[in-house]
Design a protein around this nucleic acid. Structure first.
Lengths: 216, 216
DNA sequence: GTCTATATGGCGATAGAC
DNA sequence: GTCTATCGCCATATAGAC
């Protein structure tokens, strides 16, 4: 038997198609602003099918958010908690985020907006995909980072900084330009192409900027 | 005559009350998620009155956005374009933004979300309150900043950096922690009080972080 | 200027044929 | 599993009394 011949013709395939369409539309209009009808059209199916697979708009939006979150965060924690040298971590994270966000420009604004209106999802996000409570997930990462920072400080290679502050600063510098893209685009007079160039430049400069800030 | 005795009892006062209520509700739920009914209750008036003063939800939301934008940006450009020394500008801007956003925690997520869904408002925002096209408003600010950076570089006090990059980095570091507050709160295990403490610490550290990054 | 009552449309969701 | 047709609600917006 190749591919379960008859009992269900599509199922998974259709579900994926809907989830992808929902992702596009939710990110474009925000959860509250999105319309089930538009998602159906985007997926090339009927609106009733959305409810057949996901029961309600609420559940569909939760599925989309989870998918997006899984794309953004597990890698980050994995990298931060790894045994790589500190400055290598910075390079990796900057590059990974700028890559991902370059291809998904509207994700940051969507995620931030979702977290603002559904703060409980921050928790789900950090727990799902990894086990246990959010603090349990992050604590070892922070601890690892702290020991690395302490070692570098002792060796006189960087100045003291709390791991929390370092994480927040790195993410701020990586994510915010995408989240505020419409603002910067207009303010700095950047069209599509110029913004891409600006980001390309930024991928080069940002690790240096952070490394410079950490010098003793 | 004290206060125009009869012809219009409230008018401006009522309009302000509605605008304030709308601001609260729009920021809380986002424009699409907000309900005119809730705004009316928050303002302590009837729903019909909202339409009497603002005609439509669309117009009301535009008024709210403009009010919020005027609170955030003119000061920024004024400070950036002024004759103050570079590092003093950094201090001023960091402190001003952290102060404002501490008292209006949800503004960043609201503004970013609005700009995402109504990019045309970025333009209105930068033009209204000051004259002319957006690029005309920002060009002199960038030019001024550039000349200051050049002078500091020549004097050997900082390393080269484009004015755009400096602006983006400063704003990222100031604004993003508030925009992503629900995320950081959960991830770093910060409740209300701890987050305030974190921000207070940040106000002290951020100017130093930026100054350090700029050293030659 | 402010209220109550109501019109109108749109949206999420379901029923039921195929 | 997928479609068409439709229900019922809720939100914006207006009419009209006071």
């Amino acid at each position: 038997m190749a591919k379960s011949p008859r009992p269900q013709k599509n199922d998974q395939q259709t579900e994926d198609k809907i989830l992808q369409a929902a992702r596009t539309v939710f990110i474009r209009h925000g959860t509250a602003g999105a319309r089930m009808q538009e998602i159906a059209e985007e997926a090339g199916v009927n609106q009733a099918l959305l409810h057949y697979y996901f029961r309600s708009k609420e559940r569909l939006s939760a599925a989309v958010f989870q998918q997006v979150a899984r794309q953004l965060f597990p890698r980050l924690f994995q990298t931060l908690g790894s045994d790589l040298p500190l400055d290598e971590k910075v390079d990796l994270i900057v590059n990974a985020y700028i890559d991902t966000l370059s291809q998904n420009r509207f994700m940051p604004a969507y995620v931030l907006s979702e977290l603002h209106h559904h703060p409980e999802r921050a928790e789900q996000m950090l727990t799902s995909g990894m086990g246990g409570e959010p603090s349990r997930v992050l604590a070892p990462v922070v601890a690892k980072l702290k020991s690395q920072i302490d070692a570098e400080v002792k060796a006189g290679r960087i100045r003291p900084i709390s791991p929390q502050e370092l994480i927040v600063n790195m993410l701020s510098l990586c994510v915010f330009p995408f989240a505020a893209r419409p603002l910067f685009a207009v303010a700095l007079g950047l069209d599509e192409a110029h913004f891409s160039a600006f980001i390309k430049q930024r991928r080069k400069n940002l690790p240096a900027f952070i490394r410079m800030a950490l010098r003793p």
